[in-house]
């Protein structure tokens, strides 16, 4: 398809990579991330997994490492505090400000309000958990809290993203690669319905402690909170039992009733995303290994650079797709909602 060269004024697409720990942060920076996003070691962020995330010391080291190379660090404080935990979120905002992070990514109104009143110079991004799918919602957060960027939920088609962007007072960040939430982020309670813990309240989805793997006469079974999520025939590759990615029965059919185990990959949409003026591409996966971060950052850095240099000639290289395929859930990728037919 014909794509015009970006105007000289247009800023390069920013590559925002995940870091669940210091080695991931360093490797992301070393391999070309413009920014990394991290979380603290508690339920103030939506990847509250055992052994993951940063304490004050490692966060300071990471920030020093990134900023020393003119890259940026964002801190996700994107869960919804309940009254008994409120001071934890306040402290987390204060800590982020003291550390000199380049932005806080938040979702809840109380957190945004506290941050913008207490630390007026601390840049705020609206997290994908803020569920802003239209420009009126984005304007709300901009007017009330001065957010500088919004991360869009993974539910909009490309024309819808473009329409939001054209009417948005702030820059737009979209997910480019990684685990795919089929539900609007910030509005999915499936996990707590089955396990008692949800992304909104606890920063987890389908938590590992609720998972059981069992070899049975019927095959390998995966359970979440006791509920059968999937059953695999001998030799069939088994995946983590994320609630929405199991095989279930509706009337007479047993199938992936909600979504297949698959990852989002938008490498082929880069020229369009660049042309419409997207500010940043986000890679999912703070819970993944440094090896994943290295691989994905490398590929996306190369792709963004190639696309910027010559968008008209850009096509994703087969080796890029191969590398990304290796680290994708179920070894499959999809364009997700960006491509209308997926919906």
């Amino acid at each position: 398809m014909a794509v015009a060269t970006p105007s000289p004024r247009s800023k390069p697409l920013e590559l925002v990579c995940p870091a669940g720990n210091l080695p991931s942060l360093k490797t992301a920076i070393d391999h070309g991330a413009d920014s990394v996003y991290i979380g603290f070691r508690d339920d103030t962020n939506a990847r509250h997994f055992p052994g993951l995330n940063f304490d004050a010391k490692t966060a300071a080291q990471g920030i020093q490492y990134a900023q020393g190379k003119n890259r940026r660090v964002f801190v996700a404080l994107n869960t919804f505090p309940q009254p008994d935990g409120w001071t934890r979120w306040q402290n987390a905002v204060d800590q982020a400000a003291e550390l000199g992070v380049d932005a806080v990514i938040a979702a809840d109104i109380s957190v945004l309000d506290y941050a913008c009143r207490r630390h007026p110079d601390l840049p705020l991004h609206l997290s994908v958990q803020g569920s802003a799918t239209n420009y009126e919602a984005i304007r709300f957060y901009h007017e009330q809290f001065g957010i500088r960027r919004v991360v869009l939920p993974r539910v909009l088609s490309l024309p819808q993203v473009k329409h939001v962007l054209e009417n948005s007072p702030v820059g737009i960040e979209v997910f480019g690669f990684g685990g795919l939430c089929i539900m609007v982020e910030g509005r999915c309670l499936l996990s707590s319905y089955v396990t008692g813990e949800s992304p909104n309240m606890c920063g987890v989805c389908s938590p590992a402690k609720a998972v059981r793997w069992e070899e049975t006469a019927n095959g390998l079974e995966t359970r979440l909170g006791g509920l059968l999520i999937d059953r695999y025939a001998p030799g069939e590759p088994a995946g983590y039992p994320t609630l929405c990615k199991g095989r279930f029965t509706v009337a007479d059919q047993t199938y992936y009733a909600i979504e297949e185990p698959t990852s989002l990959n938008t490498l082929e949409l880069l020229p369009e995303l660049q042309k419409m003026g997207i500010a940043a591409i986000k890679i999912e996966g703070r819970q993944r290994s440094p090896a994943y971060v290295t691989q994905v950052t490398k590929v996306w850095r190369a792709a963004i650079d190639a696309c910027r240099q010559n968008p008209a000639a850009y096509i994703p290289k087969p080796e890029w797709l191969r590398e990304l395929g290796k680290v994708s859930e179920g070894q499959q990728t999809t364009l997700g909602a960006y491509h209308r037919t997926w919906q």
Binding site: I182, C244, Q253, A257, I258, E259, T341, W342
Partner: peptide
């Protein structure tokens, strides 16, 4: 019945093997 989630995808159409449009 509690509303638990919203998606861009129509799960009713998916069950019937129809495109959302």
């Amino acid at each position: 019945r509690m509303p638990l989630a919203y998606s861009a995808r129509c799960f009713t159409a998916r069950y019937h093997d129809l495109p959302k449009d």
